[in-house]
Amino acid sequence: MSEKQKKASAYWKENVRYLFILLTIWFAVSYGAGILFKDALNGIKIGGFELGFWFAQQGSIYVFVILIFVYVRLMNKLDKKYGYNE
């Protein structure tokens, strides 16, 4: 394996690790809090919102937006680290 290929595969591994972490959060807020554990969370009330309902109709969407911007930051840093930025 050439130097160039080694660098590329190391970059790819880190990239996939980020994806795994971010998608775990993505799953947890929507399918987890908004659907699977919704009934349990609905026992908790914040203002007029039952928490499970809030995650399903509001919270998961806010987290989605944050996730993409975190991803953008992480990847820009990673690109720089490996010299792939332009």
Partner: peptide, 23 residues
């Protein structure tokens, strides 16, 4: 509550799009 499927479905897809496809 059942309407949540559209809210989460049509926004959560963007996370997949941004992370897995677009770049």
């Amino acid at each position: 509550y059942d309407g949540s499927v559209y809210l989460m479905g049509w926004t959560g897809g963007y996370v997949l799009l941004a992370l897995l496809l677009a770049p």
